[in-house]
Design a protein around this nucleic acid. Sequence first.
DNA 1: GTGTGGTGAGTGAGTGCTCACTCGTTATCC
DNA 2: GGATAACGAGTGAGCACTCACTCACCACAC
Lengths: 217, 217
Amino acid sequence: MLFFNTDSFRKLPTDKQEKILQTAIIEFAEHGFDGANINVIAKKAGISVGSMYKYFKNKHDLYMMTVSISVNKLSTTLNEIISLKMDFLSTVEKIVRAIQFHSRENIYLTKLYNQMTTENNAEFVQRIVSQMEGVTAQLYAAFIAEAQKNEDARPNINPKYFAFFLDNLFILLQFSYTCEYYKERLKMFVGEDVFADDELLVEQLMKFVKGALYLKD
Amino acid sequence: MLFFNTDSFRKLPTDKQEKILQTAIIEFAEHGFDGANINVIAKKAGISVGSMYKYFKNKHDLYMMTVSISVNKLSTTLNEIISLKMDFLSTVEKIVRAIQFHSRENIYLTKLYNQMTTENNAEFVQRIVSQMEGVTAQLYAAFIAEAQKNEDARPNINPKYFAFFLDNLFILLQFSYTCEYYKERLKMFVGEDVFADDELLVEQLMKFVKGALYLKD
DNA sequence: GTGTGGTGAGTGAGTGCTCACTCGTTATCC
DNA sequence: GGATAACGAGTGAGCACTCACTCACCACAC
């Protein structure tokens, strides 16, 4: 974990820390960096503005902290699944289901993640990308290369590119379950009922992915 | 086209209109709605703040106008390709190439589009979604259903879902060529060279899509 | 052609509000 | 009682938006 906060924040009881961070995550997720209001966050978290600035150097540091938390949560969930070392298809299916579950449980983490993708600060972006995708990128590609060896995947495909396309599907699926715009878009594509039938989506996405990799049914 | 501007704006010479809009698009794309500064936009566009407020009711109306322009440009490009009525695979390939070209030509339109997806205003979002995806969603699905009839696509897939997955690939590809975060992520997945070898990406993505639909090579 | 008056697009200094951040004061703990 | 933590009114910079004013332009009278 990177340190954007101060000693005094780390000395706080955990529940107070979490209250502050959770409040900040919601505010930043809903309004973006510029739109969020520190005074409001402090009030909602039940602390004074003064304390806020004892705990964090400035608004941007608080923001970085929340983004880091959010990205950490997302990538941890993913890495847990991957470390189960199941076969590739089972892993993919597990990830899709995790996205469906996680999106409902942690709306704001995902919204914040989407907010963050609009950031133009190069250095910041780079740090977050490697935290988020550093592991998965390699793992997906390795998985696909492995499948090629076992002749479960077409030999003439580039694992790195296929890993990228696969992750694209995951990311947009996640947004489609959480962010207003993408939710509307999903409804427009397949109808209002999507959100009531998780199984159908899993089934269809699995077919799509299986086909893409040329795996036998 | 929806009207967010005033009569006096529409009476302006076209080049002046375009100067103002282009400047606004860049500012909003770079800084988001809250981060953008109307006074700066006016100065860069070479008009007074007073005039700005003669042309647009307020900041939000100017924003809506720019987003509308951007979405219009994107969807027009797409619809032009689709209306060529080529076979499905050729259409997909043409779209992928158009994304590669368009992303470089119109960085700010795409960045603005990404900004817009973080919007929480339900009514606004709905209007934009239908402007953007209203046509394509149906068309992709129809294309796939057609392919099923010709036995070029697997019979047991749901065209609507597959259309959705396909468009997901397109959207993220677009962002991956323009927005800082997604650009970094693409580099992380396949390496720095991607941006120098458009053909390789086209080739790999086509294989991915072909496989997904179960089309013969 | 010259003078007069009316028009409205364009201007930018000014206004008032919002909000990131500070600091003198007060509470709490040992 | 001294040290440390928490407080929140206060500050000032920034910015969305206004409004009193300018002036180029045209119409009409003589």
